[in-house]
């Protein structure tokens, strides 16, 4: 009887670990193994000897697109993220007011959350292509008399704009949800107190709302920056390799050129960038946030 009881409590004691172990083991294997394998692929040749040939190819080969890809990935992020933050802030402030149909507006604004980057790209393709909605509309209105071309290698700047539009349209919802959740957490009374003491709209925004939203905006920034280095589907749909991006180059090296080592190197680079960004975030913002705004 006693042994039975002890066995029971032993199971109880280790139960949480037993429950977590399968998931954790799975994750560690499916992330740990590929990462190790990735390092092997990236730094060895067919015979398993150490080599830097993939690194040289990536950095210096005329057929490698690494530098343009890094540049365009960064450029896209630099243009898209600020627009998204501004728009999301605007939407959030808009929905913090009370009005009829507010719930409806909220649901509409978050629809793009569930739309994939591939679909988002295709949707904007249907709006921007030569026979697309906007070209037809503007021609009918007499604003233009021949279609504006958005797609094709010779129109790379326009392709860039198309990607920006599609990404802003699709992924602003994510930033919005984060910032809106942050705004919801600010008790209305904090804002009302400012009003009572004479604050106008701008003072309220600058001294109360923005400072209290800072943690949410930082989180949104982090998530968006991480995602920016994984941008793939939209770019492939709207521009192919005309506008190279890191994930796109990885895909191309892997599936078209069969440069497994180079593709693995791209993967490692994306992983490394993400880890560094995440680390900086935790170091810089999280600590400060915990200190100041632990309500």
């Amino acid at each position: 009887m006693t042994s039975n009881k002890q066995g029971y409590s032993l199971v109880e004691r280790y139960l949480p670990y037993l429950l977590i172990a399968p998931a954790l083991g799975y994750l560690l294997f499916f992330i740990g193994y590929p990462l190790t394998q990735g390092v092997l692929l990236a730094f060895t040749d067919q015979n398993g000897h150490f080599t830097l040939q993939h690194v040289y190819y990536l950095l210096y080969s005329p057929s490698s697109n690494f530098w343009p890809a890094l540049e365009d990935t960064l450029a896209l992020a630099a243009v898209i993220i600020p627009i998204q933050i501004m728009l999301a802030l605007g939407f959030s402030l808009m929905l913090s007011a009370n009005f009829k149909g507010k719930d409806m507006a909220l649901y509409i604004l978050i629809i793009p959350l569930t739309i994939s980057d591939v679909a988002g790209g295709l949707i904007w393709y249907s709006l921007l292509t030569a026979n697309g909605f906007f070209n037809k509309l503007f021609m009918a209105l007499g604003i233009i008399n021949q279609p504006i071309q958005f797609f094709g290698y010779q129109f790379r700047p326009m392709e860039f704009i198309a990607i920006v539009l599609a990404e802003v349209w699709r992924a602003t919802a994510l930033v919005f949800v984060i910032i809106f959740a942050g705004l919801q957490m600010i008790s209305r009374e904090y804002i009302e107190a400012a009003e009572v003491f004479g604050a106008g709209t701008w003072t309220k925004l600058r001294h109360i709302i923005f400072p209290m939203l800072k943690p949410s905006v930082q989180t949104a920034l982090l998530i968006r920056t991480l995602f920016a280095f994984q941008v793939f589907g939209v770019v492939m749909v709207l521009a192919g390799r005309d506008i190279p991006v890191l994930a796109g180059e990885a895909y191309y090296e892997q599936t078209i050129l069969y440069h497994y080592g180079v593709a693995a190197l791209y993967a490692l680079i994306i992983a490394a960038i993400s880890v560094v960004i995440g680390y900086i975030y935790i170091k810089m913002f999280k600590a400060q946030y915990l200190k100041e705004v632990a309500m």
Partner: peptide
């Protein structure tokens, strides 16, 4: 409210969490 020149103690205080006590009172 801002044009009424009133002052108020809120039932739930509404002391701004991101400002020091000094800045709260000075606001």
């Amino acid at each position: 409210p801002k044009d009424r020149n009133v002052s108020m103690v809120f039932q739930s205080y509404a002391v701004w969490p991101h400002m020091k006590v000094r800045d709260n009172i000075a606001f």
